Amino acid sequence: MAMSGGSDDGEPMMEMNTTPLIDVMLVLLIMFIITIPIQTHAVKVDLPQPSDQPQNTVEPDKNKVIISPEGAITWNGQPINEVQLRQYLDQTVRMNPQPELHFQPDPQARYNRVDEVLAIIKRANVTKMGFVGNEQYRNDF
Rank of each mutant, 00 (worst) to 15 (best):
Q136R: 13
S7E: 11
G10S: 03
D106S: 12
K44E: 11
A119K: 15
T19Q: 00
R94V: 03
D46V: 04
S4D: 07
N96W: 02
Q104H: 10
V65D: 06
E70Y: 13
Q55T: 05
N56K: 11
Q104W: 11
G10Y: 12
D9T: 06
T18P: 15
S51K: 07
N112M: 04
V27Y: 02
L118G: 03
D9V: 06
L101P: 08
D115A: 11
N134W: 07
E116Y: 02
I80C: 05
E82V: 03
E15L: 02
A124V: 04
M129D: 08
Q84W: 01
V114L: 06
L28K: 09
F141W: 05
H102T: 07
I120S: 00
I66L: 11
G5H: 14
Q49M: 04
F131W: 05
P105L: 10
M95L: 14
G133M: 05
D115C: 02
P107L: 03
T19H: 07
K44A: 05
D8M: 12
L29G: 02
M129I: 11
A72N: 08
I121M: 10
I80D: 02
N81D: 10
N96T: 14
D8V: 06
D115H: 07
K128P: 15
A2Q: 15
T18V: 14
I120F: 07
N139R: 04
Q84R: 13
N125L: 08
S68N: 08
V24E: 07
F141D: 12
I67Y: 02
F141H: 08
I120L: 05
V43W: 15
N125Y: 12
I34H: 10
R86H: 01
I67M: 15
N76W: 06
R138S: 12
D8P: 04
S7Y: 13
G6P: 07
V117S: 04
I67G: 15
F103H: 11
L85N: 02
R94K: 14
T92M: 14
T127W: 10
R123I: 10
T127P: 08
H41K: 08
L29Q: 09
K62Y: 02
E82N: 05
F32T: 01
T92V: 00
T57L: 08
M14N: 13
Y137Q: 14
P20Y: 10
L21W: 13
T127N: 14
I33P: 01
L101V: 07
P107K: 10
G77Q: 11
N96Q: 12
Q84D: 09
Q55G: 00
D52V: 06
E59T: 04
E82F: 00
Q104P: 06
P97A: 09
I34W: 15
I67T: 08
P37F: 09
M14P: 13
I121R: 11
D61Y: 01
A109V: 01
S4K: 12
V24T: 03
P20I: 07
D90W: 13
D46I: 10
P48L: 00
N139P: 02
Q98F: 03
P37V: 01
N81Q: 08
D9W: 09
L101T: 08
I73T: 14
I120M: 03
S68V: 00
E11N: 09
R138C: 04
G5I: 02
E11R: 09
P107F: 06
Q108K: 02
N139E: 01
K44S: 04
G10I: 10
V83E: 10
I33S: 07
D90H: 12
